[in-house]
């Protein structure tokens, strides 16, 4: 049997989501961004809301998210995505508006913007990629870097007395009256991917119900920044990140 006999529409069991563009991902092998991008594209496609969705990309590795998901995009200044999303949604209430932010963007330079957007209960979706490191700038300490973790700016490991403590910002967000759905997910196994997709879909659906902000954290890997190869990085994440950043829903109302 020739390969041409196998590649037929009736034999197809899985295909690339049509909302993902053909641009080659710039993300490193093993990075969680690619999986999360795919999940968002699938959710938008399955909900049939491509013409009603506006994405807001951050500064960080995901700055080029607009090259990969085939919807309208706004590229924000570092940390300011929730402010853009606030106005975009309030001026266009019929649109699904989401921000896609990393830990440096959301939990460090953009802390004020995310806290206040969530506290106002903006009807937006926030996808928060927490890999505990600054990827794009070359592996510096993030607000979510674990104690003891080595980075370019904590070469001997993060010390509480020198660098302060890792920030559990999602736990803080869950306390805010304006949020309706706050959850922490991961994408390192097939069951985790399925759960994360369900969470993303729920967040998008919430945003049209005027219930407030939906916030989905994805605990992620950064192989280049952590200097750990993909399979080992998944294990490292499970053993070190999950005890400090436990998975599951923190709020759902």
């Amino acid at each position: 049997m020739d390969v041409k006999d196998i590649i037929k529409p009736e034999n197809m069991v899985y295909g690339k989501t049509k909302l993902l563009t053909d641009n080659i991902l710039h993300y490193c092998p093993g990075c969680s961004h690619g999986v999360v991008h795919k999940l968002i594209a699938e959710v938008i496609d399955e909900m049939g809301i491509q013409d009603k969705t506006i994405g807001i990309s951050p500064v960080g590795c995901a700055v080029f998210a607009y090259n990969y998901i085939d919807i309208d995009w706004e590229e924000a200044a570092h940390g300011r995505a929730p402010a853009l999303a606030t106005a975009t949604k309030r001026l266009n209430p019929d649109k699904y508006v989401f921000t896609y932010q990393g830990d440096g963007d959301l939990a460090s330079i953009g802390t004020a913007e995310i806290m206040h957007a969530c506290n106002r209960g903006e009807n937006i979706v926030v996808i928060f990629i927490n890999n505990a490191i600054y990827g794009m700038t070359g592996g510096q300490m993030a607000p979510t870097t674990l104690l003891g973790m080595k980075t370019a700016t904590t070469p001997y490991g993060r010390r509480a007395d020198l660098n302060g403590y890792p920030l559990k910002i999602t736990e803080l967000i869950a306390q805010l009256e304006g949020t309706c759905y706050v959850t922490r997910q991961s994408v390192e196994t097939a069951p985790a991917v399925r759960k994360a997709k369900k969470a993303i879909r729920k967040a998008f659906e919430n945003s049209m119900m005027k219930k407030g902000t939906s916030f989905v954290e994805i605990v992620s890997t950064c192989n280049s920044g952590w200097k750990i190869p993909p399979v080992k990085a998944n294990k490292w994440m499970e053993e070190n990140m999950f005890p400090f950043y436990p998975l599951g829903d923190m709020k759902d109302r």
Binding site: I54, E74, R80, A85, T86, T88, E113
Partner: peptide
């Protein structure tokens, strides 16, 4: 017309940016 008190001038100019991205007069 939407009127909103932002948490800072940093946020308000970025709200203007977000609104302007959608072609609105902000």
């Amino acid at each position: 017309m939407v009127v909103l008190q932002a948490e800072s001038e940093t946020a308000s100019i970025n709200m203007v940016y977000g609104g302007a991205c959608t072609g609105k007069k902000c």
